[in-house]
Amino acid sequence: MLAGYVARRLVGAIPVLLGVSLVVFLAMQLVPGDIAKALLGPLATQETVEEFRHYLGLDRPLPEQYVNWLWRALHGDLGRSFSSNMPVTDLLVDRLRNSAILLAGSLVIAIPLGIAVGLISAIRRDTPFDRVTMGATLIAANIPTFVFGLGLVILFAVQVKWFPVQGMVDLRGEGGRFDLLKHLVLPAVTTAIPPAAIIARMVRSTMLETMSQEYIKAARANGLPERTVTLRYALRNALPPIVTISGLQIGFLLGGAVFTEYIFAWPGVGDALYKGILSRDIAVVQGAVLVVAVWFVLVNLAVDVINLALDPRARG
């Protein structure tokens, strides 16, 4: 049953993934002017430009270019970086790992924190705790990641010097796990807090909605302890929307991570994306966005599958 559903959803994701690849490919067509000319600089002769265009495959019809590009991408070939002349795939592999570390760190903060704050606020509705946290989350949800990151840098890296300002490892130090963790704290918190604030707000309203249901009233009338009522009867029913909310916020987190990596010089995909944009290294930009978008499609897929497993009604 579940396996069948997963298979169907996987097949259903194929057109979306194709669409994603098409958008990323077509985005390159938005580059103003002639890429080949731009890359070779103003001194290149018309002949060299033509030759280079041919080398890049730019003289082919657009659909053919897309199919070729997609075929190579499926085989792990995302082209070459114009600026470093390295294969984009090689360039991204290490960075993907670094980004994954940052994202894991942020998720471990954002999701539990958001859910816990939202739950407590809902249970203690209209208490000072609820009012203060809801005010704080409203503001936190409206702070851009880069502003939040710079704020943390001022406080914790410049003023009290608890954490390093930049990078993943201390170049003078021994390295190791502890060093990495120390470098991870500020970037992870920066990336995590705005999505955590949104998760908290949405979890709160979802829980309040669930707690107004008649079966909750019935559970109270049956004399079940309040802990059981809220943490088992209500939370269990609020879980599917909470999973959906958290999944959506992962997308937001991915966007925020681009800024975090830039601010903290974290050598991840977002940092590559930023440098790619600066040097107009289109293949790198394409590759980075494609990788992140595919990852996000898979996250959404996982959310659907988890929710199916959670919902007895959907199982029939």
């Binding site: 993934l17 994603v20 958008v23 990323v24 991915l254 994306l273 930009v285």
Partner: peptide
Amino acid sequence: VFFAFPVVLLAILIAGVL
């Protein structure tokens, strides 16, 4: 297809290539 992109990332992609 557009919902498959994290919004901020899509904005960076488009502004970046333009």
